[in-house]
């Protein structure tokens, strides 16, 4: 049962991500992305990381994707630019990146099949993650907070309406 669930979630994640990056309609693409994220959070849970699974849903699906959605709607892209997107996504444009990505995938799979290190598997609960975060990785947490602050300030600065529109 768990095995089946794992493979179904994995397949779903791959398929919905593939659709997310190829759909011409931005709103559709974002909805696929949410599906992908949800299936990823299932994968996380199955891998013994319930805390990460929860964060994935809350932060990614709940915050980041919604933010993207806001922007897409604000710029009013969903309908008017579908036709334009179709013309932009010609095979001559995507065939090269497709091959490149496939090669990278092949290389990564070869790397993994060559001998992934063996080891025990366990469930690492939120308590263990929290302990790790605030003991050995405390400095990292502080740096991450700087990053977030600068992200907030940067977004505010960049997002303001310029007085003079650029020529």
């Amino acid at each position: 049962m768990v095995t089946v669930l794992f493979f179904v979630a994995g397949a779903l994640a791959i398929v919905s991500t593939a659709l997310a990056v190829t759909r011409p309609n931005a709103v559709h693409a974002l909805l696929y992305l949410i599906v992908a994220i949800l299936s990823l959070s299932v994968l996380f849970y199955l891998l013994g990381a319930p805390f990460a699974a929860a964060l994935e849903v809350i932060v990614y699906a709940g915050a980041i994707v919604v933010l993207l959605l806001f922007v897409v709607m604000m710029l009013n892209l969903s309908h008017q630019s579908v036709a334009e997107e179709r013309t932009l996504l010609k095979p001559s444009i995507w065939i090269g990146p497709g091959i490149l990505a496939a090669v990278l995938l092949g290389a990564l799979i070869a790397l993994l099949s060559n001998g992934a290190p063996a080891g025990g598997d366990s469930i690492e609960g939120p308590a263990a993650v929290g302990t790790a975060l605030f003991r050995p990785y405390l400095v990292g947490v502080e740096i991450a907070s700087f990053l977030l602050i600068s992200g907030v300030v940067g977004a505010y600065h960049l997002g303001r309406r310029l007085k003079e529109p650029r020529p």
């Binding site: 990146p97 090669v103 990278l104 290389a107 990564l108 790397l111 060559n114």
Partner: peptide
């Protein structure tokens, strides 16, 4: 970005 990707492919390829 293609340049970056080529570099990544080369790096992973070298590792494999």
């Amino acid at each position: 970005l293609v340049g970056i990707a080529l570099g990544a492919v080369a790096a992973v390829g070298a590792a494999v």
